[in-house]
Design a protein around this nucleic acid. Sequence first.
DNA 1: CATATTTCTCACTAAATTATCACAATATTG
DNA 2: CAATATTGTGATAATTTAGTGAGAAATATG
Lengths: 224, 224
Amino acid sequence: MRILVVDDEEKIRHVIREYAEFEGYKVSEAKDGMEAISKCKEEDFDIIIMDIMMPKLDGFSAIKEIRKTKNTPVLMLSARGEEYDKLFGFEIGIDDYVVKPFSPKEVMARINAILSRSNKKEEESPTEGKYVYKGLEVDMLARNVYVDGVKKELTPKEFELLQYLIINKNIALSREKILNEVWGYDFFGEDRTVDTHVKMLRNSIGRYRDNIITVRGMGYKFEE
Amino acid sequence: MRILVVDDEEKIRHVIREYAEFEGYKVSEAKDGMEAISKCKEEDFDIIIMDIMMPKLDGFSAIKEIRKTKNTPVLMLSARGEEYDKLFGFEIGIDDYVVKPFSPKEVMARINAILSRSNKKEEESPTEGKYVYKGLEVDMLARNVYVDGVKKELTPKEFELLQYLIINKNIALSREKILNEVWGYDFFGEDRTVDTHVKMLRNSIGRYRDNIITVRGMGYKFEE
DNA sequence: CATATTTCTCACTAAATTATCACAATATTG
DNA sequence: CAATATTGTGATAATTTAGTGAGAAATATG
């Protein structure tokens, strides 16, 4: 089950993500209406959680646009009072709405309610559990890395980079994509930064350094 | 599974009873807050369905009173608009709510959702019994902590934090997640508060302080 | 309702991490 | 092979993060 959370506040997105992931949903985020539309073009979601007031493009307009091609259920978020009346008069179908500040439990209950109407089943994401390749062991939950039985202390970025490479093992990843996924869309630095972190990561994983392959002209990949 | 339906309208109570009994629940009724309180003293319910506006004692106050001794999940009923704002600002956890007029099916779906969630949680968390690691003994029921045989007096938060870390041992927990689970979703304070409590907890558990590992850029974990 | 305890925030410090740069090394191309 | 493009890497400055003591605020206790 995939959820798209659209809100300009990082904290809101995060809290919904936390709860939704706990219940086994796969969560994507967008920080405004424009981003929501493009994410919906890339991927099919089972439900969209959408704030009304956002920079660039507001929630109503975004839904209007998305609904031209898809019929994804929508749960609206709104600040107290804000647009309250419009919501009910809105000509496009909203499946439910919640007023901020909300309790995450409530939102989850509503998400579950909407989704149970159109039920499906989901898969396990490889982000959890342990990845083991020869003497390289990466515990995604505990955030531990062992090389031939020896625990290695990785910095947060090193770990997240390794995690991302492993999740996408055997796939060549551009620096840009790596920056977007590991650093976040709000990072506006050099793409050579990736190189430096790959260097450090390689140093941290000893003889498995060679499993991080340089893809010339593009970026890197982890190869088994 | 026992349900308590609290509403001053006989018709409402009746329709919920019909549906709930059909699904195998045992249903009790109360027609106002006072009656609800006394019924809860007599018997333990698995869930309470409670209207807000009622004669004698309203739903909020009744829940407040009941929650002093029990932690029964609550599904609130409310007329549209009525007390809407209060519901969200309500300091006592409501598990869900439904706006009248409602469809009985929807109410049943929500009841089932709440109950399956609360059952799950009990199974997953070994909150009962004792946790022993070397000379560290944590009695979850008695809320006692012994370090090498010496009893340590922890503050409530210290204990709950330790308990949560132990229940999730070997899992890296973000500050945010810790706040959500230990402090509750209605806590909107600093996430550095966790740090301070970790500091105090570490001081309280003597040589086992090192088992509470700092996960840089993320939070903490308890490691055996 | 005064006192004690607990909880939370803040400010400061020390330490770790990160990003960038410059240059070296290596690969690619004509 | 020389010229060019691309990646590797050491050094370092800037930034971020966690530990902590002090004290305010909230809560519990008698």
